[in-house]
Design a protein around this nucleic acid. Structure first.
Lengths: 140, 140
DNA sequence: GTCTTATTGGGAATCATTCCCAGTATGGCA
DNA sequence: TGCCATACTGGGAATGATTCCCAATAAGAC
């Protein structure tokens, strides 16, 4: 989402908690809320605080390691994304299980820029999320 | 955004408060938060409660009179939209002043549907919002 | 090992939004 | 025109996610 220049890595220590959060996210290819990740970690016996989970999630986003999407109900959900920072992309998200598929739409990008320019808008970015029911959830 | 069948109007009374909220929204073509609308109304001497503002805003949305967009920070903002219910459209929003321009992108619609179908997703809908700085705000 | 300081976590604080419910006002009806 | 059933109102409590604060803890450099 950020339009800043590539975030330069700040000095950052390697901690168990940070690794745990990353692992939790890596375990599934779905968008998960901070609360959810926290619950999972605790249930897993991990010793970690909620604040810390939020902190790391935010760091991942800042570092371009994770994508965020805000569910319609306002909750923020996170997911690790391979080369998210290098490849701008969007998501097709299952509104039931959260499973997400990365999608690209070059046409959409150019369309967005064009429309913005035509209306005199600058410093533009956009959000495109497609919600639906994945095959699995639809069958259930 | 809803995929339901056109909401059938429930019996609904005409009240001063309801009218006031609608007027407040109609006064400007920008997306405004409930808190914002509430503050404006009160500042304007209107006798109305915060709950009531939220209530009417939600009603407008349900009735297809208004559009909602969730700002990246999670706050919900509302704006009256002429024939929103009949014409599916998106918005180009100024991230500074909230001013919004209605835009259409037939290509985006079909693209979204196609991508979803290819991935086995059903019951699909999507959100597309473009944020930027309008000419006025950019100049300031 | 020691020291500097980033990191942690738990509880308080914030904030938007929702809930609850007794009081109020609208619309229908006689 | 007056009355009644009930939709609407609003203030404060409740909720829930997220942020803040800060003393205790633990990386990592020398």
């Amino acid at each position: 989402m950020s339009l800043m220049a590539p975030t330069q890595q700040v000095k950052r220590r390697a901690t168990n908690q940070g690794a745990a959060v990353k692992e939790a996210l890596a375990a599934e290819d779905t968008f998960r809320s901070a609360q959810d990740v926290y619950a999972t970690l605790r249930a897993n016996g991990e010793k970690i605080g909620l604040s810390t989970v939020y902190r790391h999630l935010q760091i991942f986003v800042d570092d371009g390691l994770a994508d965020v999407i805000h569910k319609p109900d306002g909750e923020s959900t996170y997911r690790l994304c391979g080369d998210a920072s290098t490849t701008h992309h969007h998501h097709l998200v299952c509104r039931s299980c959260g499973k997400a598929v990365e999608i690209e739409g070059p046409a959409v990008e150019t369309w967005a820029d064009k429309v913005a320019a035509q209306n005199g808008f600058t410093d533009v970015n956009h959000t495109v999320e497609i919600f639906g029911l994945c095959a699995t959830c639809a069958a259930a």
